[in-house]
Design a protein around this nucleic acid. Structure first.
Lengths: 236, 236
DNA sequence: TTGACTAACTTGTATATACAAGTTAGTCTA
DNA sequence: TAGACTAACTTGTATATACAAGTTAGTCAA
């Protein structure tokens, strides 16, 4: 909330989310917005570019910016959000159970996934996510000990990301994710409520710190009926 | 290829794709790039911002831009690409069969999805995509007749998008997609090779023209073993 | 009426400048 | 030696200006 263009972005996005601006409306021109926000046109353009990237508006050269329909997403896996952040929006309906918590010598496959050497250790955390009484998601996290020297089972019960960012001062930069569909394993069947389901959605993520060093590999396994991924894509 | 920052983007992205720049390398500073490309720093920054958004590089304030690992994606559904564009990269291994081709009075649900009035007609096209002899994908397209007055079965066999963009001069702007997992329908089982599979990946898309008018609704149904979605996400 | 043209808007691109903020390496001091 | 400091880099933000390119509405002439 410190940058000028971020404030403008938030100002306009809020107007769209709460209905003061509705789909089909045209925004004021960039020059008018610059005037009314006491900013230069380039600063307005930065804010509008972000709004456009996030699917709030669409810009047409020579015409202006048109407001798009923004559906509120119930349960998105898009972007880079932690389960804790999701559950905060869901109130007290979500619980986390820590099934496994240990420091291990990584297998060759895991060494490869985390780009580690043989002697570097890895935290292994397996957690079950329960929503409305149903065990829906199985999260398997592997964190490089060299970036996270200390971890406790209590932190895992709450939020690892919160601990990393607020206590350790690590700042997460970006992630590469891959979504595939697999057959449920015995472990999936044991830990999740999968009666009547024949497949499981697997989201594998490589998570990097802000300085571009790989520090975490995560496999998140979702029951298919509760999985929904929403994407906004621009042509070229 | 006309914009200066696009040329710079392509120049650098090619260097990353063909290995002249490899993961971990630092790019020259923005001032050096401005000098060597005879451009202003702001123009360089536009190109670097695009590279960063597309996952080629990561920028760190005070340090510079670091090259990331770019895996070549075999079969991505990310972004906004047509099946034709995908198959061009796959050579002659892909075929398309048109199962249904008709102009219909849309059902209420379809009217809603396409935001049409009662008297407006809709093209309905159902196509099966075969890859390496296996029928993998079922594409159900619904196009508003008001934007696409003429369509032929021959166009559907080739590429609808190519026809829209090159012959009709329509320019596709953006799309909203939703990925879910469902049980296969009888139609899925009849038209696709689904022996031994118990679920199907459904990608529903609302496609908009460049002037932000909704003109197409598509449901693309994928056999789960051949589905893979790759995503690059930045924090905040 | 029709069509060509134009004027006045809109957004897109490119440049220059200034300063803020983060990183790094070396230097100086206690 | 250890720590504080600084200078010289890096990227981030904000502004101003100029012109290109697309859209729209109105005017004027055939």
């Amino acid at each position: 909330m410190k940058n000028k263009f971020m404030k403008i972005y938030e100002n306009i996005s809020k107007q769209i989310l709460d209905g003061r601006l509705i789909a089909g409306d045209m925004l004021p021109s960039e020059n008018e917005l610059a005037e009314s926000h006491s900013a230069s046109r380039e600063t307005i353009r930065k804010a509008l570019k972000m709004l456009s990237e996030d699917g709030y508006i669409h810009k047409v050269q020579g015409k202006g910016s048109i407001v798009l329909e923004m559906k509120r997403l119930d349960f998105p896996v898009s972007g880079l959000v932690s389960f804790k952040e999701l559950t905060q929006k869901m109130g007290e309906r979500a619980k986390t159970y820590v099934e496994t918590f240990e420091k291990i010598n990584p297998s060759p496959a895991l060494q490869e996934a985390l780009k580690q050497t043989e002697d570097e250790l890895v935290w292994k955390v397996i957690r079950v996510r329960e929503i409305d009484g149903e065990r829906i998601i199985l999260d398997k996290d592997f964190l490089a000990e060299k970036y996270v020297p200390l971890l406790t089972i209590d932190i895992c019960r709450k939020s690892i990301y919160e601990y990393l960012e607020e206590d350790l001062g690590l700042s997460i930069g970006f992630a590469k994710k891959e979504i595939t569909i697999e057959e449920p394993t015995k472990e999936d069947r044991k830990l999740l409520d999968l009666e009547g389901f024949h497949s499981i959605v697997v989201v594998k993520s490589h998570v990097y710190l802000d300085n571009a060093s790989l520090f975490q590999f995560t496999e998140s396994r979702h029951r298919p009926d509760k999985f929904r991924f929403v994407d906004f894509a621009r042509r070229k």
